[in-house]
Design a protein around this nucleic acid. Structure first.
Lengths: 104, 104
DNA sequence: CACAAAGTTCGACGATCGTCGTATGATGCC
DNA sequence: GGCATCATACGACGATCGTCGAACTTTGTG
């Protein structure tokens, strides 16, 4: 029922950077950052298959970037912004702002 | 003679994050950031082979993180801090400060 | 209960990665 | 010139990655 969510203090910079280095995942994180509301998995990355999406969400979750929980048949996701900011101050901001520029 | 050094404006966030996501390369970048002096390649990452070192330096260079040039038989490396900061403000600082904490 | 919807699991695949050793170049010094 | 030093080029290897489809589970709804 509960999934693997690494503790705030055990976040690994290499895992975080690797998780963010994939354009697909970076796009997901950017979407999560824009709308502060949790969102079901299915509403992301419409071009890829369900299993690939599951894989990307697991990478993000195991890196500690997102939190996930089930609600009915949906799985919700939320960016762990406070935790990431506490451990790596400024990182998410700089990555996301560069992403925002790229999307204009 | 001259190597591939991407233009400041063509730096790719995914390539940069991927380049930094390897612990070996992150260590090299951290060393380069600490001593502002250019350093020969051979003085890095003493545990790994020469060819692996060459490979890592190429990844860093092609991502636009470092600049390299030859001096005699040595090849010098320098962090392209201004360029990276201009393109991705705050990124290098946050990554390097987390790295510094980890090394204490 | 039967069915639909949302995710997961399980191979599988080609591509890329990190690492190595050996051979090869380029440069400086005796 | 001969030799040592520093780095590159070229496979090669096992490991990981991103992607997929098919089968399955879980949950809600008729």
């Amino acid at each position: 029922m509960s999934f693997e969510h690494p503790d705030r203090n055990s976040l690994d910079i290499s895992a975080v950077l690797h998780a963010l280095s994939d354009p697909q995942r970076l796009g997901m994180v950017a979407e999560l950052a824009m709308s502060d509301e949790p969102r079901p998995c299915g509403s992301f990355a419409p071009g890829i298959s369900k299993s690939t999406r599951t894989h990307h969400f697991r990478v993000l979750r195991e890196a500690g970037l997102i939190e996930q929980w089930k609600e009915g048949t949906c799985k919700m996701s939320r960016l762990r912004r406070e935790d990431v900011d506490a451990r790596f101050p400024g990182l998410l901001d700089s990555v996301l702002s560069s992403q925002a520029v790229a999307q204009v």
